[in-house]
Write a protein that binds this DNA or RNA. Sequence first.
DNA 1: TTAGGGTTAG
Length: 714
Amino acid sequence: MPQRNVSTLIALFTGYMQNGLQDEILDLFFQMQCEGIRPNSFTFATALASAAAQGELQKGRMVHGQLIKSGNESAVFVCNSLMNMYSKCRLINNSKLVFEGMEYRNSISWNSMMAGLVSNGSYREALKLYFQIRAEGIKPTQSSFVTAINICANLKNLVFARQLHGCVVKEGYGLDGNSLTALLVAYIKCVEMEEAFQLFNLMAETRNVVSFTALIGGYIQNGNNDKAAILFSEMRKDGFDPNDFTYSTILTAAPMISPYLIHCLLIKTRYECFPSVGTALLYAYTKVGNIHAASMVFEKIEEKDIVAWSAMLDSYAQAGDTEGSIKLFKAMAREGVVPNEFTLSSIINVCAGITAAVDQGRQFHAESIKFRQQDNICVSSALITMYAKKGSIENAYKVFQKQSARDLVSWNSMISGFAQHGYGKSALDIFRDMEARGLEMDDITFIGVIMACTHTGLVEEGKRYFNLMVKNHGICPTMEVYACMVDLYGRAGKLEEAMKLINGMPFEADAMVWRILLGVCRVHRNVELGEIAAENLMKLEPQDSAAYVLLSNIYAAAGEWEKKGRIRKLMDDRKVKKEAGLSWIQVKNKVHAFIASDTTHSLSDQIYRKLEEIKLKLKEKGYVPDTNFVLHDLEHEHKEALLAQHSERLAIAFGLISTPDGSPLQIVKNLRVCGDCHTVIKLVSEIEGRNIVVRDSNRFHHFKGGSCSCGDFW
DNA sequence: TTAGGGTTAG
């Protein structure tokens, strides 16, 4: 390497410093060492600052080592940069050691320590330091106030924020932009939008992109998208160019503010490729359901960080594209990006999806272990839900038992898991355990508990929990809770009570509530209430096939063929497409799908032969088909034939002929299992000596030895 | 020579 002269190196160093070329500064610092140039205090402070800016702990430590050797460690400003370096590298205890060991301190030392604690999330300790500054008679600077206000914002301490506002004015910083912006943020975080807006109006001279962005964000978070949009255009009219922060903020208002419009503005800037902005845009497109646009944006992001990858993963997950998410996860691994707890929990959630194979979830359980994330609450709770949804409530419970720490989500996942499987007693046991430990609960907890009662037919118990939730826990019932209660009453045949509950709700029932009522009217063949439910559902969601199909089924079951025909015609007129009934079964890593009367499977002949064989055995058992569940106006015999070809039966027949005797079968169905199939599957489990698990659109059924875990409440 | 205001999600 050519010998460079000392003055060239120093000139270079100064040049890099002035231009903020952080990584070059550090490299040059070490090169100077090699060339025997002795750094002075200023060189050390600069090198430490550049290590701080890049979060380069290793290099920062090396500089610290050199500093000790050089004997320059007593200068106050050098210690300040040292503290700052450790704070930025998230070693707050080292910063504290430096701070405590300082013989002399200036205001920057105090401010730095305070800011370090804030960035470490230790707000209360930082606040203590502020009081210490005041108690020791040290004059707070503008920066002390900014940091102290920042603490108020994070602690949402409005009273102290207002006091500091007074101090700021008294100390002569009343026109200082940074202090006012910090105050603006504090008011916004305390949800004092009126006060924030007044302050913003007073800031005429000092408003800038930052204060505009903060206020826009505040309005969006409080659901006032109109004001946010107005402010956004106002700021542009006033000649303030939105920056990367502004764009990420305004994009969070999707879908209320169109991501397409914001994207048009973005294309003209350099921000589109920023990870932060690109990721926000990606999320915005996901929210409006445009996965194609989302993935185009993703491709454009330069230096994709873990957040960008997670966002794309969520985007596929939301679209229900299991394969897409898994491919993306693998691509991420190929690029050497280490998955974190969030990417892992996302992919595990994807594997809980209806079309995902059971083994895929298990595979990502293994990945979590590989990356030592299996005990992270986020990951383990996702595992509980995944195993529960994939039919293995035993594995779900194993993960739950192994959790070294639990939060509300973990408890809720386990309760809902047991409830969906019809293990009402186990779900309630978990709930009682939560009660005994005095843990906090929310509406989701009670949704699980009420669902457990529904699937076990415990109407009175369910009612008791509903009241407990309102009276003892002060939780306001949400629409979903009401929907569960309607289901609880309805399943038990108490349709009038369900209707009374709907009429007494403090808000208008939504489509979900009417759909549930309609569903139970179908089970209990209640034409009158069924009509009311269907009418309301059609008003709210005219394209939802469930309203038409269920009502026409109710008419069919009541023998009202003419009315049924009218509904079918209405469906045709409105071009409503019926969701086709599909059943899946996984055999040897391959998922096989069936529709009713399917003959496309390669083993179709054998499947139908097996069904014939089962039919004979069923007859011997005294089974009589319940043709009420066939909903065409057909001859009786023909109805029987149609019943026998429901998709779940085809899947089961296929399972029986392609797996060893005695092994369990697992079926997934996108609609609900019909009553006749339910009876048949119970008998098949006995005749064939198989445990059969069926996950329908509503819950799990574990068939074993002639009975079902749902106890016929479903 | 060092501190100090605003985004993103599971």
